[in-house]
Amino acid sequence: MADEQNHEQNKAEPKNIEIRVRRQDGPGSEASWEEFSLPWKAQHNVISLLMAIQAAPVNAAGQPTRPVVWDCNCLEEVCGACTMIVNGRVRQACTALADELEQPIQLEPMSKFPVLRDLSVDRSRMFEKLKEVHAWVQLDGSHDLGPGPRQSAANQEQTYAFSRCMTCGCCLEACPQYNDDSDFMGASALGQVFLFNLNPIGAVQSEERLETIMGLGGLSDCGNAQNCVAACPKDIPLTKAIASLGRDVTVKSLRDLLGR
């Protein structure tokens, strides 16, 4: 199998990888740091380091401990599960390669979501927002109604970029406006409004979708810090969507004001 090519490529000097993990038993409990030291191997990433701790849960002081709790699934940066803060930067743990990280590698849970345990957080709020903004195409039914409308390749490329959003939370973690004191829905939900308003069938409901972002916590809460677009692991042009939605909302407001 593919792992057989993993023979130690660098047998020169045995070195260790030092890791610090911010640990917390539950939402209300105290957080503390625990250090780990693991033998170097080729192609370690943050996930495989945490897996190595699972199989031999002993900390750097040599004391037995419990395995670290974290979320992950696909391990190839398409599911969005393993988002955490690695060396101060929010990103997916799977693409955080040990050889490219400064040590000690410092792992923390995202700060904008409730911690469930250790590095695992509750991002259900993000999915709730997708409901509020009607992030779907309203079909008549799943029965056979023939092909959908033709679309230009250019339109497909634009929608595809936004449709790659994994609801991972990087954009929200990076956003100064997204915090406990605000209702701001954040860039990910706005990106989905833009996406469905671009879709030829989805556009039919674009007015009602725009209404969902015109109130409190909507588009006007964006402070234009542009951190979202820098933090997005899929390079989704979120600020472009926000600017475009801004124009759409202005036009709609004027139309509403003038009674069309």
Partner: peptide, 16 residues
């Protein structure tokens, strides 16, 4: 065709 109607951004030919 159902997936297309649901909004899957399938890649397109020049004719659409």
């Amino acid at each position: 065709y159902l997936l297309d109607r649901m909004g899957v951004p399938f890649s397109r030919t020049p004719e659409g």
